[in-house]
């Protein structure tokens, strides 16, 4: 029974919603990942398209939910958020939602996700001070069901966004390679 439920969930959440993209779409995405402010006119020129054709493609990528918006990477230290950390938590079963909710409420949160592998929940947070992180850690630790919590500080970080492997994607078929 569980097997079928899992299958249904998978097909709803991802498989049926994939979007077909071709080489030109990939090229457009790459340009925009490099610089979201690049003039569409210039991208059109690089791709050998008319501005109108390019505009239509970008519009489609947005409408189909491939492009979801923009991110402006900034030096958050300058805004007082000096510390970046990952928090990994191990829990008793079925406590994930409750703990995720608690982290959302108390942390300067970038992301919190249930996970499998070393941790049951992975969160990515920012903090003004170490004591702010310490108190977050204590808040989580006091929750029933929390077995272990690991805070790891990020030091020098490199963002290699251009490493993203974007490839053309054809219409969904049964055999996903």
């Amino acid at each position: 029974m569980l097997y079928f439920r899992v299958k249904e969930h998978l097909s709803e959440s991802s498989m049926n919603q994939t979007v077909e993209i071709d080489e030109i779409d990939v090229r457009i995405l790459r340009e925009l990942v490099k610089n979201a402010r690049k003039k569409l006119k210039d991208i059109a020129k690089d791709c050998g398209l008319s501005s109108n054709a390019l505009f239509k493609r970008v519009k489609r990528l947005k409408a189909t939910g491939v492009i979801t918006g923009t991110i402006l990477y900034t030096n958050l230290e300058l805004l007082g958020l000096r510390y970046r950390a990952t928090i990994g938590i191990n829990l008793k079963p079925d406590k994930e939602l409750k703990i995720a909710k608690l982290i959302r409420k108390h942390a300067n949160l970038i992301a919190v996700n249930p996970s499998f592998g070393k941790y049951d929940i992975c969160a990515f947070v920012m903090a003004k001070s170490i004591s702010q992180l310490e108190s977050l850690k204590e808040t989580i630790r006091k929750q029933p069901g929390v077995r272990r919590i690991a805070v790891n500080f990020w030091d020098i970080t490199y963002f290699n966004l251009e490493n993203v492997g974007l490839q053309p994607k054809r219409a969904e078929s049964h055999g996903r390679s």
């Binding site: 492009i67 900034t74 963002f159 974007l166």
Partner: peptide
């Protein structure tokens, strides 16, 4: 001055596999 690092687009990768 590296206050702004990089403006980029966000992508929902589940849409492209």
């Amino acid at each position: 001055k590296r206050i702004i690092w990089h403006p980029t687009i966000s992508i929902d990768l589940s849409k492209i596999g």
